[in-house]
């Protein structure tokens, strides 16, 4: 097997893992203002509390794998998307600190400030990852030296940002529905249906644009169809109260979206809007077969173990949470719990 092609696929898998997992905790973060009161916000935060940090390691690994397997792709992507990446970093910083610091003091102002840090820190990367991934396909001004010269904002990229934002809102709402009990569970399904309808509309336009306007082969139509199947199926399941299936639907839609973008992209890794021959390609930007071989062995040995213990974590924290399960916030903030 051609190792660069394999690693193109593995990078796609890592992004899939990242967006399916962190996608729901971005969604939960963005939905905090929809909660009725502080107790509900607390329940929502605790549905993702044990896992959000581990979800984010999928990003660290995806970026690390891109660096290792495709140094030219990594270099062009990060230097080219300088300001979006800066915003992603700042957002992730305040968001993660917010999760960890919010409950450390009981006073309202302190907690509200960190809640807003979580809301904004979730919304910004949810949108910007959509912008970045769509722009890989839609093209940015890459010159003959492989450097991005000029703006990376395009209508297609912005539509991608809108799509991931609304998709993760839906995905997160369904996660809240799946992990809570009581009134919030019922309302979370309603949030999912509302944002889900918007997502279907945006997805339809974005996917049509991708398959008809960007793709150079008919293959991306298959995962693109799966995005819509996942979304529509998921919303139908949510309507009849089957949260597990509904969440599976949006997870499938997220994975299929990544697949659509990466199959459209192949055999390129970043499209140049200036001249097609300046696009970065899988073979032109990859590392040596020696490096890729070592990475392949490591990935084959370690990834199943990682997936295994992450699944176990979700099993350990499988119980639904409600406001009645929350310990006294004063005691927690006083360090007595």
């Amino acid at each position: 097997m051609d190792l660069p092609v394999l690693w193109f696929g593995l990078v796609a898998v890592l992004w899939t893992g990242y967006l399916v997992l962190e996608g729901f905790d971005f969604g939960v973060g963005m939905l905090l203002p929809a909660a009725r009161d502080r107790a509900e916000r607390r329940v929502m935060i605790n549905t993702v509390g044990p896992v959000f940090d581990a979800n984010e390691v999928w990003l660290i690994t995806a970026v690390g794998a891109t660096f290792a397997a495709f140094p030219d792709w990594y270099a062009t992507l990060f230097s080219g998307f300088y300001l979006p990446m800066l915003l992603v970093l700042l957002a992730l910083i305040v968001r993660n600190v917010g999760f960890e610091f919010r409950h450390k003091r009981a006073d309202l102002t302190w907690q509200r400030r960190w809640e807003w840090a979580i809301v904004l820190g979730s919304a910004v990367p949810a949108a910007l990852w959509g912008l970045v991934l769509a722009s890989l396909v839609g093209g940015v001004p890459i010159d003959a030296e492989g450097e991005v010269v000029g703006s990376v904002l395009t209508p297609y990229g912005l539509l991608g940002a809108l799509l991931t934002t609304s998709l993760f809102l839906t995905h997160g709402a369904l996660f809240v529905g799946l992990k809570t009990v009581g009134d919030i569970r019922v309302r979370a399904r309603r949030w999912a249906l509302t944002s889900g309808l918007l997502t279907v509309l945006v997805a339809a336009v974005f996917l049509a644009w991708t398959v008809l306007g960007q793709a150079t082969s008919p293959w991306p139509a298959v995962p693109a169809a799966l995005v819509l199947v996942g979304l529509v199926g998921g919303l139908a399941a949510a309507r009849v109260g089957r949260e597990g299936w509904a969440f599976t639907g949006t997870a499938l839609a997220t994975a299929a979206l990544v697949a659509t973008l990466f199959t459209t992209l192949f055999p390129r890794v970043m499209v140049s809007s200036l001249d097609p021959s300046w696009s970065l390609t899988v073979s032109g930007s990859s590392s040596t077969d020696y490096t890729l071989g070592i990475m392949t062995v490591a990935a084959i040995v370690v990834t199943p173990v990682v997936i295994g213990y992450q699944c176990w974590t979700y099993w350990v924290f499988r119980k639904r949470l409600g406001t009645q399960h929350m310990p006294d916030a004063q005691l927690v903030a006083a360090g007595r719990r």
Partner: peptide, 9 residues
């Protein structure tokens, strides 16, 4: 890049 990727993984 490889040590960085392995660090994550």
């Amino acid at each position: 890049g490889a040590p960085l990727a392995l660090e994550g993984l």
